[in-house]
């Protein structure tokens, strides 16, 4: 496995010319150019998300009846929308919300999935069977449709989207983590821990959970991109982010559909921003998977 060897090579001692960390990054960039691109995109997006609001060229919410649907020009670089608001400003601010939705939903699903997966795999028995039926039933729904149904039930709000995404993605985490837990159960040191009388909670928390971390990371990075896309798709279908919240999904929905042919810039810029970020997350996730879990490479 050539790539594995390359990755192991990352751990060879650094030469004094450059600091070790920088060298590592350079090597990473050379060996995984896609992954490095992903990292660059994410770092850039994070910077925009953090300092963006203070560097936006225009007011994001202020409607301007005399600047409606202007095509991109030197004042409004990305043009203006149907309320006369600057699209560049809103794309910058939307980064924050889209990432927030993705990351918080991912953390929620990962936490829930870890707890359920570890306990389900560790205890087994009836508890496991019941949990797995729930997981099966939830996984049966294509995620977008489940999201539609959940949003129809919960009503539109940012928190409800996060809740719905957490519910949809928890089974994915649960399945993977349960499988890892099952194989860990047979590992000698955990058996040893059990023999010396460690409590179940202690074993799960200190021995099982940390060892599932690599898998959690892999599932997480790949989920975030999908979550962001589902958020956008929900908005497109009119059941997503409320429009007063500036998210890329909301910018692509509602009025945008009605004005897209005549003023395509109102949809193209948020759509491109979303695509670039999800692309970055996905290639970063691939690279991460290669490094953390060579067995799963490419899948």
């Amino acid at each position: 496995m050539a790539e594995e060897q390359k990755i192991q090579a990352l751990d060879t001692p650094a030469k004094p010319l450059l600091s070790g960390r920088l060298r590592k990054w350079l090597r990473f960039a050379r060996q995984k150019p896609l992954g490095a691109t992903g990292v660059a995109i994410l770092v850039l997006t994070a910077i925009i998300g953090v300092i963006g609001p203070s560097m936006t060229p225009h007011e994001p919410l202020k409607a301007d009846a005399y600047a409606i649907l202007l095509s991109p020009n030197n004042i409004y670089w990305f043009g203006t929308d149907v309320m006369g608001r600057d699209i560049l400003t809103r794309v910058i601010l939307g980064a924050r919300v889209s990432l927030y939705v993705g990351i918080v939903s991912m953390l929620a699903a990962a936490t829930l999935g870890s707890i359920i997966g570890v306990t389900s795999g560790y205890f087994g028995g009836k508890y496991d069977i019941i949990i797995q039926r729930f997981v099966d039933a939830l996984s049966a729904f294509p995620s977008l449709l489940l999201a539609i149904a959940l949003m129809a039930a919960f009503g539109q709000s940012l928190n409800n989207i996060i809740l719905a995404l957490a519910i949809i993605f928890t089974p994915r985490f649960t399945r993977v983590i349960r499988a890892v837990t099952l194989s860990l159960k047979e590992v000698p040191y955990i058996e040893a821990a059990r023999t010396i009388g460690c409590s179940n909670i202690r074993i799960m928390a200190l021995h099982v959970f940390p060892n599932t971390f690599a898998s959690v990371m892999v599932v997480s990075t790949a989920s975030v991109g999908t979550m962001i896309i589902i958020e956008a798709s929900l908005s497109f279908l009119g059941v997503g982010t409320p429009s007063h919240i500036i998210s890329w999904g909301a910018m692509l929905s509602g009025d945008t559909q009605a004005y897209f042919s005549g003023a395509p810039w109102i949809g193209i810029f948020p759509g491109m921003a979303l695509t670039i970020v999800v692309f970055g997350i996905n290639v970063f996730g691939d690279a991460l998977r290669d490094i953390l879990d060579p067995k799963l490479r490419g899948r």
Binding site: V82, G238, H244, G254
Partner: peptide, 14 residues
Amino acid sequence: TAGQGLRENEALQS
């Protein structure tokens, strides 16, 4: 929830 009726309210807000 959307369209003209919503923009009418957003206009008032503005």
